[in-house]
């Protein structure tokens, strides 16, 4: 469903991604791990279409469409969802209003009518319960005054509401205590299955105890240097990133 071919990108003058190749098939959960500064979050931002990043080569196809040609909102409407590492606070816009706008914008993109308010409210109730969100939070401004854990839960809640075909989770575990981590992981696991593809980006193996990936890739200095099964994450946890650095050096 997602095919990344030789993707390179830079921020200002700094080359960050230096030729990424990755294919994710329907229903698969992939994890990308890597040390700080390896380009993990850049990859997430490039996929979602953040304008600070300039793609300098390669291609990304989602369902055989050229993803890089699409605007960020079109990518979302085509079924791409990015759970932000740092969810943005938007004072003055309530969570409910924001979600209704998003759902109806995506429906409009597909030539559908607005979701009936009753159906929308029922969906909100169901998904809020899944994420153990206090209903009072829904009438508050988007992420405003939310704790770190609440913000991340709110991301996965939005993901559940929008029912995307392909999800990118950018360091969703950062800043979470173990209870919040479990709730977030439960939410993500509830969305696993079927044809939905998930790409989990993380620095630590901890999250992968709860969201068990089918494949693990190690990103270093803008390239995927090693891929394997879920046991690769455990190996990384045990040995740190240095053993891979040595492997890469030996190869070169």
């Amino acid at each position: 469903m997602l095919t990344i071919t030789d993707l390179s990108a830079r921020v200002e003058e700094k080359e960050i991604l230096k030729g990424i190749n990755l294919t994710i098939n329907p229903g698969e959960v992939h994890a990308i791990m890597g040390p700080n500064g390896s380009g993990k979050s850049t990859l997430a931002s490039v996929l979602a279409g953040r304008s600070d990043y300039e793609v300098t080569g390669g291609s990304v196809e989602l369902f055989e469409q050229d993803l890089l040609e699409l605007e960020p909102d079109e990518r979302a409407a085509e079924g791409l969802f990015l759970a932000f590492q740092y969810p943005v606070e938007i004072p003055g816009v309530t969570n409910t209003y924001f979600l209704r706008s998003a759902i109806n914008a995506i429906r409009k993109y597909h030539g559908q009518e607005d979701m009936p308010p009753k159906e929308f409210m029922a969906l909100v109730k169901e998904k809020a319960a899944l994420m153990e969100l206090d209903p009072a939070m829904l009438s508050r401004s988007v992420n405003e005054g939310f704790s770190g854990g609440e913000k991340k839960r709110n991301e996965i809640f939005q993901m559940a509401m929008l029912d995307p075909k392909f999800c990118v989770l950018d360091e969703t575990d950062s800043g979470l205590d173990i209870d919040a981590l479990k709730i977030v992981a439960n939410g993500v696991n509830a969305l696993r299955g079927g044809d939905r593809g998930i790409l989990v980006i993380t620095h630590y193996q901890r999250l992968l105890d709860y969201i068990v990936p089918d494949f693990v890739h190690v990103l270093m200095d803008g390239r995927i240097v090693k891929s394997g099964g879920k046991e690769l994450a455990l190996e990384l946890e045990e040995k740190g990133y240095d053993f891979i650095k040595e492997e890469v050096a030996a190869r070169a």
């Binding site: 279409g49 909102d73 409407a77 998003a102």
Partner: peptide, 14 residues
């Protein structure tokens, strides 16, 4: 800009 991108990343046109 960050808020605009956040909204767009959820499917809301510019």
């Amino acid at each position: 800009e960050d808020a605009l991108f956040y909204l767009r990343a959820r499917g809301i046109p510019l």
